[in-house]
Simulated assay, not measured.
Amino acid sequence: MSGLVLDSGLSQQRSWRLPPIGALLALGFLLAVLLAALAPQLFTRLDPLAITPREAFQAPSLAHWLGTDQSGRDIYARIVHGARQSLAIGIAATALAFTLAIFLGLLAGLGGRRLDQLISGVLEVLFAFPSLVLALLFVAVFGSGVGPLIVATGLGAAPGYARLVRGQVLAVRQAGYLEAARALGHSPLRIITRQLLPNAMRPLVVTVTMGVGQAIVWASALSFLGLGARPPAPEWGTMLSMGRDFIANAWWLTFFPGLFIVLTTLSTTVAGRYLQRRLEGRHE
């Protein structure tokens, strides 16, 4: 009896163990980015669009922590306010991609052999192209701007997600608990929404978490090419694009926006890996 109590106490202690320092730093950084997106006034009172020509191209200092750009705008304020647009683009594009992936994956996994072959063939053709190239193609069709940028990034990422969803649906659809639900007379819609989807999607939570960071990178790349948010919007990719002409003399114009893009992507990856270990029951 005492052995059981001891084992229970040890397992409870392991379950309450703090995340490793890397995961804590990643989660802390993502929390700060989220707060900046929701309430930028908590971090700065400066207007990210305020132009002060006499303060143009000031290097990082106590007055301007990350320097100023060619129009005298404060880089720190622009990065803080840009978190909202960059994070919103990443989340919206990932949500769009995963919604399309669920629809196509369910059709391919449950729609019969011919429909599966048709959808799988289309996905294979799309997957043969790099996702960023697909996003560039969609931007060329829909035009530039934040809305088309979200659609283009989401459509570019959808084929990869759809393949994963299809594989999970095929792996889960013959499970015993689904057969039991059919035997109990549950409707197909209820079986899909209550049994199949939750169990098929659980392993993909990690992929979606890391996909937000990847979507931010793709959206920033498109904005850098002038196909995303239009200047002087404080979007991180647009800031990179605006500062590239002055990189030789004002390195901070591109360094700090690029740094925050990298840190956000790295943090989503680390947080996703930690979440994966937790879902798999590994607490180390």
Rank of each mutant, 00 (worst) to 15 (best):
A158M: 11
P159Q: 01
A162N: 10
R163Y: 07
L164Y: 08
G167F: 13
G167C: 11
Q168N: 12
V169W: 03
L170M: 11
A171S: 13
A171R: 10
A171E: 07
R173L: 05
R173P: 15
A175G: 13
A175P: 15
Y177W: 08
L178V: 10
A180P: 13
A180K: 09
R182A: 13
A183I: 11
L184S: 14
S187I: 09
S187W: 08
P188Q: 01
P188R: 04
L189F: 13
L189D: 11
L189A: 15
R190T: 14
R190W: 12
I192M: 11
R194F: 11
Q195S: 14
N199H: 07
A200E: 02
A200R: 06
M201Y: 03
M201R: 05
M201F: 12
R202N: 10
P203L: 00
P203I: 00
L204N: 04
V205A: 02
T207W: 08
V208R: 01
V208F: 02
T209I: 14
T209Q: 10
M210K: 00
V212L: 06
A215Q: 02
I216Y: 08
I216L: 01
I216V: 07
A219Q: 10
A219I: 11
S220Y: 03
A221V: 08
S223Y: 05
F224R: 08
F224W: 10
L225Q: 04
L227I: 07
L227G: 06
A229C: 04
A229V: 13
A229G: 13
R230E: 14
A233H: 09
W236V: 05
G237C: 05
T238C: 03
M239T: 03
L240T: 03
S241Q: 13
A248Y: 12
A248H: 14
A250H: 07
L253I: 04
T254M: 12
F255D: 10
F255H: 06
P257T: 01
L259D: 06
L259E: 06
F260V: 08
I261W: 03
V262N: 03
T264L: 09
T265C: 14
T265S: 15
L266C: 12
S267C: 03
S267N: 06
T268C: 04
V270R: 01
A271E: 05
A271K: 00
A271G: 04
G272Q: 03
Y274K: 00
R277L: 12
R277S: 13
R278M: 05
G281T: 05
R282N: 02
R282S: 05
H283P: 09
H283M: 11
